[in-house]
Every structure is written in C-alpha cells, then in structure tokens.
Design a protein around this nucleic acid. Structure first.
Length: 109
DNA sequence: CTTATGACATATA
DNA sequence: TTATATGCCATAA
C-alpha cells in the first residue's frame, strides 16, 4: 500500500481494522502511531465515516477508556454490548481493566 | 482562499 | 476533586 495515497481518515481505518479481538485502543494512540499525536480529534472525527467501512469503531475509545462515541451507534448500549461480547468488561461507559485490554499500535505494529 | 466542525487531550482554576 | 477553557489539525463546504 502507498500511505501517501491514503488520506488521514483511511489511515485511521487501516489501523483500527488491526485492533485484535477483545482489545481496545485510544484515539490519541492511533493519532500518535500515524505521526500526528495532536490529531486525536481527527481520529474520532474520521470514525464518523467508518460506518460504511469494516472498521471496529467500538474498539476505539478515548484516553480514559470511556465510551464517548457510543451515541454514534444505533442503540444506546450497542457499543458496550459489542465490547462485552468480546470479553471486555464495561460499566457505566467505562471500560474495566482498561490497561489490560489496551492495545497500543505503536508498540504492536 | 476562509470558516466551521469535532467519537480528543491537556492545562488551568 | 470536578468544571471550564484552550490547543490541535484534517476535512467539508
């Protein structure tokens, strides 16, 4: 692949697709991996268009492991259900054992 | 070209 | 401690 031809959004999708099952990562971690650690907002904003993609957007949360983007999913608890289906414990929009399920692309790729 | 947007992150009070 | 303000930057219009 030629990253130069991929827009920032597309790069975000590529990284998000590589998130292992049962793991999650943060917007900042993805942005950092892409070399734009100040562009965490762009990562989240990019997910807006990830609905038509094969992107596991539910595995991407903010730095605190909070499901801030759950309102962008169909139901009010769909995102949480998807995570719990993968073995990730979630309580009140907060991922439990976040450090354990956290997946850092810059350290795994 | 300029302005607006935002599923974040960090700084400050 | 929580709440508010500011910076950040790719994309859309």
């Amino acid at each position: 692949m030629k990253p130069e031809t991929l827009s920032f959004y597309e790069k975000v999708y590529e990284v998000a697709r590589q998130i292992p099952y049962g793991r999650v990562t943060s917007y900042g971690a993805i942005a950092n991996y892409l070399g734009a650690k100040r562009s965490a907002r762009l990562v989240g904003y990019a997910m807006n268009g990830s609905h038509n993609k094969d992107v596991p957007a539910h595995r991407v949360v903010n730095r605190k492991g909070l499901l801030t983007g759950k309102h962008h999913f169909e139901g009010t608890n769909l995102m949480q259900q998807l995570l719990e289906s993968e073995g990730v414990k979630v309580k009140d929009n907060q991922i439990q054992n976040f450090e354990m399920v956290f997946w850092d692309p810059s350290k795994s790729l």
